[in-house]
Structure formats: structure tokens, C-alpha cells
């Protein structure tokens, strides 16, 4: 399973793709079971350079009943920093946030499909 993510150009916010729209919560992200549709969406996303920066697909794993990004880095992007639980998306709470906080295993480097160097 995969999801498509990027940072929004105007404010840098982490966003996820859902049916042609960008949503801010991982819980609202569209999940791609097949490679084809995911790549098609990535192609559409890349054609929006004034909306988002460097969209890319990420791998997901099962976290309890739900899905979570495979890599720790992507889970941090979907949640916020662990030293400030009052900052970032994690503030909202909810099932998916909790599932992400408890997901385990996996590398930063394995979760990022088509890893791009980024600064």
C-alpha cells in the first residue's frame, strides 16, 4: 500500500493526495493498493509545481487496524516533532494519529519511493 505526499509550496505544510486534492491529514490520504494508479497520481501531482514541492510516493505498513507510513521519517512528517507534542498534526489526536504514534519498525530510507535529495 502506498500514499502520495508533498509539502505545499506556500507554507511548507505536509500534504497528502486524495482524488486530485491535497489534504493535510494522513487520515484523509488516498491509499493506493496498485502501483499504476499511484504513479498516475504522482504524475498529476508533479504537474502542479506552483501548488506543491517534490511530490513522492511513500510505502505504508499495517499499524493495528490502520495504515501507517513505513518509515519513521514519514511518520514524523504525518505527526510532528516528538520533542513538542503540542506542535504539528499530532495535536488533533484521533485513531490514526494514535496508530502512527505506535507504529514501529522500518527505515527512513526504505519508505521514500524515488528518494530525492532534499534541503
Amino acid at each position: 500500500m502506498k500514499a502520495l505526499t508533498a509539502n505545499r509550496l506556500t507554507d511548507g505544510e505536509v500534504v497528502f493526495w486524495n482524488q486530485g486534492r491535497w489534504v493535510e491529514r494522513f487520515a484523509d490520504a488516498e491509499l493506493f493498493a496498485e502501483a499504476g494508479p499511484g504513479e498516475t497520481a504522482e504524475g498529476h501531482a508533479k504537474a502542479q509545481p506552483t501548488v506543491v514541492i517534490e511530490p513522492y510516493l511513500i510505502d505504508l505498513i499495517e499499524a493495528g487496524e490502520l495504515w501507517a507510513p513505513l518509515s519513521y521519517r514519514e511518520r514524523l512528517r504525518a505527526l510532528g516533532p516528538t520533542n513538542r507534542l503540542d506542535h504539528g498534526k499530532q495535536v488533533e489526536g484521533g485513531d490514526v494519529v494514535e496508530a502512527l504514534q505506535h507504529a514501529s519498525g522500518a527505515a527512513r530510507s526504505t519508505g521514500r519511493v524515488n528518494l530525492i535529495k532534499r534541503k
Binding site: D11, E13, I53, K119
Partner: peptide
């Protein structure tokens, strides 16, 4: 913002002004 320059071109410019894109924001 208007799309006149690409992210790649802009990156070099914003970095010269100390503006990075990090995990959660700029």
C-alpha cells in the same frame, strides 16, 4: 509563487537567504 521560476532554480535562491524546506514546514 507565480511559476516563473522552477523549484530547482528557486532553491538556490531561497537557500542564499537561509530559507530551507524541512520536514514539517519551511
Amino acid at each position: 509563487l507565480s511559476g516563473e521560476i522552477t523549484e530547482d532554480q528557486f532553491k538556490a535562491i531561497r537557500l542564499m537567504n537561509g530559507l530551507y524546506l524541512q520536514l514539517h514546514a519551511y
